[in-house]
């Protein structure tokens, strides 16, 4: 019993040392992210404008297909809000895998808490996400589909929840991509499937047409609650009871699991690169 206590205490001490050194390296994470952002667009004619153009084009492509041709999506702001939220998560996943694989020189030469790399990737994708919210309002406010009300304050809760969820997934794909590079080949399909299974390109009313067991499975999708809360915050849609708590619980679970798995593995990363 006391041995168990000592063991868990030393584990706690190690974890707190890890996060303290992570915190002391925060400027490094920020510079890495900003450097990548700058470098990515440095050689293009439109430069930083791409952060607004990319989500706009992404939204328009899906609107053309699902809004205009198939007429399956209610309106553009419904589609875009879901699209942008989902895109941030999918970027976190693909970027997380690459953040380790593409920085092998850094990893081999310098000792630092490896979680810095998925975090820097998350900051980078987060800037794109904020830019896409500007695009969303540029579309939603003129068309009158954003009903801004007190629910907007939910944004202060859902963004941290979403970030923690993304960090967990990003750390998880980063950890898996080191021994299994195959992840990079599979991820686009996982993301595509996940998008189609989420209430993003089809309206929530579609659910009524599904059979009971399928409905129950669909509700397990974390995007269900996260996108739901975002829509309440950004567009003023009604907030279903329990949605916020569900999203927070899922994010906590996924976040802790992803980060924990990553940290446990990180001392072995250099051997595999």
């Amino acid at each position: 019993m006391s041995a168990l206590l000592t063991q868990s205490r030393s584990r706690l001490a190690r974890t707190s040392t890890y996060f303290r050194s992570l915190w002391s390296r925060r400027e490094f994470a920020w510079y890495l992210a900003m450097g990548n952002l700058k470098a990515r667009n440095a050689s293009t004619a439109l430069g930083l404008l791409w952060w607004v153009i990319n989500p706009l084009l992404l939204g328009l492509v899906y609107y053309l297909v699902f809004g205009v041709i198939f007429e399956s999506s209610r309106d553009l702001s419904y589609l875009l809000s879901g699209m942008f939220v989902f895109h941030f998560t999918s970027q976190a996943m693909t970027g997380g895998a690459n953040s380790i694989l593409q920085n092998s020189r850094l990893l081999a030469n310098i000792k630092f808490p490896r979680l810095i790399l998925p975090i820097a990737n998350l900051i980078e994708a987060g800037v794109g996400f904020l830019a896409s919210l500007v695009v969303l309002y540029a579309v939603a406010i003129p068309s009158g589909s954003a009903d801004l009300n007190i629910h907007f304050l939910l944004i202060l809760l859902i963004i941290p929840i979403h970030l923690f969820f993304n960090l967990g997934l990003s750390a998880l794909t980063a950890r898996l991509a080191v021994p299994f590079r195959d992840i990079n080949n599979i991820l686009p399909y996982i993301n595509r499937l996940w998008l189609y299974l989420s209430p993003i390109i089809w309206p929530i009313e579609f659910m009524d047409r599904m059979s009971e067991p399928i409905q129950r499975v669909m509700l397990l999708n974390p995007m269900w609650s996260i996108v739901g809360v975002y829509r309440a915050a950004l567009l003023g849609d009604p907030l279903e009871p329990g949605l916020l708590a569900t999203s927070a619980l899922i994010a906590l679970g996924v976040g802790l699991f992803g980060i924990g798995t990553f940290i446990k593995y990180e001392s072995r990363i250099v051997r595999h690169l």
């Binding site: 990893l107 081999a108 030469n109 000792k111 001392s267 072995r268 250099v270 051997r271």
Partner: peptide, 8 residues
Amino acid sequence: RVLAGTLR
């Protein structure tokens, strides 16, 4: 690399 602490 062992001395640098990147390889255990």
